[in-house]
Amino acid sequence: MKALLRNPTTAIGAIMCALIVAAALLAPWLAPFDPVDQNILDRMQPPGGDFLLGSDVFGRDVLSRILWGARISLVVAVTSIALAIVIGGAIGMVSGYIGGKFDLLVMQVMDVLLSFPALILGLIVVALLGAEIHNLIIAITLTAIAPFARIARAPVLSLKERAFVEAGRALGFSHARVLFVHILPNILSEVLVMGSLWMATAVRTEASLSFIGLGVKPPTPTWGGMMRDGFDSILDAPWLSVFPGIAILMLVLGLNMVGDGLRDATDPKLSGS
């Protein structure tokens, strides 16, 4: 962990992520205004003055909306990736462990899932189920299951040939025990690294879906939704789109930097520790 933060890129990424998590947690206290409170008299105020980051067409404070919007982005990203890790990871592990025709079939299904661009798949699901936060989570989970199945399967294929797995069988351990007690800890770091990288993708997908109007319904603040709202007046009031855009950039970049750092930290001497 210490060695991880000694890498400046990773440290910066971790700080960026920590700031956003703090902002999301402390939104009720940090936000100077109610994020959905409309105030027509103060509409389209430029940054500075009463509104630090300006106000939108309804006179809502952009800073407050960004702080509250961080909650949606994080909840959607964390929940959907956690679900994808559990579901996709289990599918990949079991498939790789059983092998043979079963593995072939499961992986073909995963390939079909993988062939849909994340946004298209998300679009289909949200269009079918409706624009609700839990449907957004389902949509993003679906897009991430296949990559996690692949990531979990590959190391299982090589680990199951190792003698310690055979030793477990010879000692009379059940397949479930061998797979989840012995193999799982050996692939966990790879899957978690992938998780942090995919979290960034989930944030982007959520923002993209919100941007095209398939995200969480207004007036709930979301970063993608805010960008879309500001898009109409981007020339007159660029702050409306730019600030939520910067927020998305910070979170995605931060997550990617942390993910890269984690990958480097676990990669070289995996067999050792």
Binding site: R162, A163, F164, A167, A170, H182
Partner: peptide, 19 residues
């Protein structure tokens, strides 16, 4: 299986590195 056990050739792969 309790009554018959095996010792492997490769001592580097026969133990779980994470236990």
């Amino acid at each position: 299986r309790r009554r018959m056990q095996i010792i492997f050739q490769d001592p580097y792969s026969s133990l779980n590195p994470r236990r």
